[in-house]
């Protein structure tokens, strides 16, 4: 099966409320599982970044729809290329809700500090892209950036 992945960053037109994020989460989870789209979305203070993977026709159509979405602007595609295997088993969305109660149990939701390190199935260039994107959205990373990448090779 052919697979593609796309990474983009964008800016929310106005800050998304918990309600907005909840709705987006529900809709994406439903539609993405229908379309066999997997990946992850980061949101913080109006900064948005997303990676999604799936069949090329589907990812292309989805990106077109997302780019047109009036909730955000300055959509900048960083990468769009074929991949051998999926790196994400399902679809997740990571953000800091104002009211964390209710979100923690929500399927598909992740606290930003719970976002797993870039999976090792990604090339290092793509893993670095994800780390940079995460940095751009959430700011300075936690201590353990790149735990999935092999440690420094001792000489």
């Amino acid at each position: 099966m052919n697979l593609n992945h796309i990474v983009y960053i964008s800016r929310a037109v106005r800050p998304l409320t918990d309600q907005d994020l909840h709705e987006l989460l529900e809709q994406c989870r439903r539609d993405n599982s229908k379309n066999h789209i997997t990946g992850i979305l980061f949101y913080s203070h109006g900064n948005i970044a997303q990676l999604f993977e799936g069949e090329p026709e589907i990812t292309e159509a989805l990106f077109k729809r997302i780019k047109r979405d009036g909730r955000h602007s300055h959509v900048q595609k960083l990468i769009d290329k074929p991949i051998d295997v999926r790196s994400f088993p399902d679809w997740h969305m990571a953000f800091h809700p104002l009211e964390s109660v209710g979100f923690s149990q929500l399927q598909g939701f992740l606290m930003p500090d719970r976002v797993p390190a870039p999976p090792s199935t990604l090339t290092i260039a793509d893993a670095m892209l994800i780390e940079l994107v995460r940095l751009a959205v959430f700011g300075t990373p936690t201590e353990q950036a790149f735990p999935a990448l092999p440690g420094p090779t001792s000489v």
């Binding site: 290092i124 260039a125 780390e131 940079l132 940095l135 950036a145 990448l149 092999p150 440690g151 420094p152």
Partner: peptide
Amino acid sequence: QAEAARHWVKSVA
């Protein structure tokens, strides 16, 4: 590569 990537992310941060 991993070392360089880590280094670059740190510089950007």
